[in-house]
Design a protein around this nucleic acid. Structure first.
Length: 514
RNA sequence: GGCCCGAUAGCUCAAUGGCAGAGCAGCUGACUCUUAAUCAGCGGGUUCCAGGUUCAAAUCCUGGUCGGGUCACCA
């Protein structure tokens, strides 16, 4: 593209041509290394221990390579920094050693890849350095790297051209290495507990299993509307029904909603389902899993997050939802759940019962200066209170337990109080990181709950209610064991461990407004 | 979608209505142990776009594009 960068671009294109004209291939297919940069550095340090440090000490020759990140030329000698995926190593290039090869130097630029071979030594200033006997250009870069000292600051460019962000910052590279460690750690943890990893459809006929707006797409040959999944939940339960007692899936889910610092339209979840477990069992599993991941990804159980230090050491406090709301707002949600329950038992239809209870709670919320928003069902209202008044106060890892049934159409009621379900959510740094329940496995009750969601959907004209999935109900009618289910937000975990408040900092290529 | 803020050299940033600048990167030259190498010199701009106010606009006004923050919506 013709922009003002063209001048620098043209200079590099010319150098590329000059190399070719001199019979040098600027893009050779291979360069056999003997060591990564890090391995070479370690090798020399070990060698020094063995032989003793002297200025003239030279190791056996090594062949190393990397991107040129610094060039300090001094006429007939030059110090260049080469960065590979493991470390940076300095190369010392001398005209009297390299001879004609030294004339390649004017055609090299920051950003090019270079291979060097030669013995290692330690410079007077103490840096382990390869004394090049041979240099090979491995790849000519045609555009300059970001500014070497300040790096890349422009937020938009950092996200749109993440490769430049990575190139310029070891911290960013390490952040995504850490994200990989989290994924490995969690996989390992689940595998070790006897779970099997499965893959379920991303293109689905009904976007069910959560309350969210889906992306819509179309299969041409079938001439059929399909959706991108908003959760993996229902398919995973069907695996459990089929006899795969312990399954998990790590995968991307897609929600067609607002984009902000906490939400990317595609994000990664780990969902697991375990037959014969309940939400207490899952709670213990989550503590253990997240603290193990913290240990492996950050090297400890305590992680700095802004001004706070999050301590993931189990056990995490359990906080009763009703009590937590009462403590923070003075609102007791129980009477409203009671109103709803009584109204339903008296045979009022869902709309009538909902309106009765929701109106009361919304009024109470206004008294407490909480905006109830519009078109809100009792479930959404309670969710709103939690989001506004409870969630932000949960800095240290905490479980919020026992949710109203209306918020959780897939969770099993408590035996001692059918207005509540056996559900918990895990929070840290004021963010939700996990959601779990003892799964509802009564197909008749499940159908009723779905139907209620459908009615709420009509009543509030809102897309964000769970949908009735016949294939799932049919599966459940074949018998589903008591099961403990879990969903964990991998991006949120990565944010916590990275100490970052923005999800964009832990997603390599986040969605931007375009 | 509403509100607030921002966009200046390839990159990082100055210039508060009066000649658009610095550092890095680039180019030329010097330099065989440098560490953001140093030294001397040179080039580099549709100041996001379109319009307006003004003798004069990077700067003020209007609209737009893109981004950030925030609210709404939403895990």
């Amino acid at each position: 593209m013709p922009d003002r960068g063209d001048e620098l671009f043209e200079v590099r294109v010319k150098k590329r041509e000059q190399l070719i004209a001199r019979g040098v291939n600027p893009y050779p297919a291979r360069f056999k290394r003997t060591h990564t940069n890090q391995a070479a550095l370690h090798l020399f340090e070990a060698f020094e221990l063995e032989k003793g440090k002297t200025e003239s000490l030279r190791s056996e020759p090594v062949r190393v390579a990397g991107r040129i990140t610094a060039m300090r030329g001094m006429g007939k000698a030059s110090f260049n920094k080469l960065m590979d995926g493991t470390a940076s190593i300095q190369a010392y290039l001398r005209k009297d050693i390299l001879g004609a090869q030294y004339d390649l130097l004017p055609d090299l630029d920051l950003g090019d890849f270079l291979g060097v071979s030669g013995p290692m030594f330690r410079t007077r200033t103490g840096e382990v350095t390869v004394e090049a006997k041979e240099i090979v250009i491995l790849s000519k870069a045609l555009r300059p790297p970001p500014e070497k000292w300040h790096g890349l600051k422009d937020v938009e460019q950092r996200f749109r051209q993440r490769e430049l962000d990575l190139m310029a910052s070891e911290e960013i590279r390490n952040r995504f290495r850490m994200r990989s460690t989290i994924l490995h750690s969690i996989r390992n943890f689940m595998d070790n507990r006897g779970f099997i990893e499965v893959e379920t459809p991303i293109l689905v006929p009904i976007p069910a299993g959560a309350m969210a707006q889906p992306f819509v797409t179309k299969h041409n040959a079938l001439d059929r509307t399909l959706f991108l999944r908003i959760a993996t939940e229902l398919y995973l339960k069907r695996c459990v029904i089929g006899g795969l007692d312990k399954v998990y899936e790590i995968g991307r889910v897609f929600r067609n909603e607002g984009i902000d610092f906490k939400h990317n339209p595609e994000f990664t979840t780990m969902e697991s389902y375990e037959a014969y477990a309940d939400y207490h069992d899952v709670m213990e599993m989550v503590e253990e899993m997240v603290s193990t991941a913290a240990q492996e990804a950050t090297g400890g159980l305590r992680v700095k997050f802004g001004d706070e230090t999050l301590d993931f050491t189990p056990p995490w406090p359990r906080l009763n939802l009703r009590q937590a709301i009462l403590d923070r707002t003075g609102i007791d949600i129980t009477p409203f759940l009671e109103t709803l329950d009584v109204a339903k038992r008296e045979g009022k239809d869902v709309a009538e019962a909902e309106t009765l209870a929701a109106t009361g709670l919304a009024a109470k919320m206004r008294e407490a200066h909480i905006d109830p928003g519009i078109r809100a069902s009792i479930g959404l209202l309670v969710d709103k209170i939690v989001s506004d008044k409870v969630e932000p106060t949960l800095i240290q890892p905490t479980f919020l337990v026992d949710y109203p049934k209306e918020m959780s159409p897939l969770a099993k009621q408590r035996e001692d109080d059918p207005r509540l379900v056996e559900r918990f959510e895990g929070f840290a740094a004021g963010m939700e990181i996990a959601n779990s329940f003892t799964e509802l496995n009564d197909p008749v009750e499940q159908r009723a709950r779905f139907q209620e969601q459908e009615e709420l959907h009509k009543l509030y004209g809102n897309e964000d209610f769970d949908r009735l999935d016949e294939a799932f109900l049919l599966a459940m009618e074949h018998g589903m064991p008591p099961t403990g289910g879990l969903g964990v937000g991998i991006d949120r975990i990565a944010m916590l461990f990275a100490g970052e408040r923005s999800i964009r900092e832990v997603v390599l290529f986040p969605q931007l407004r375009t």
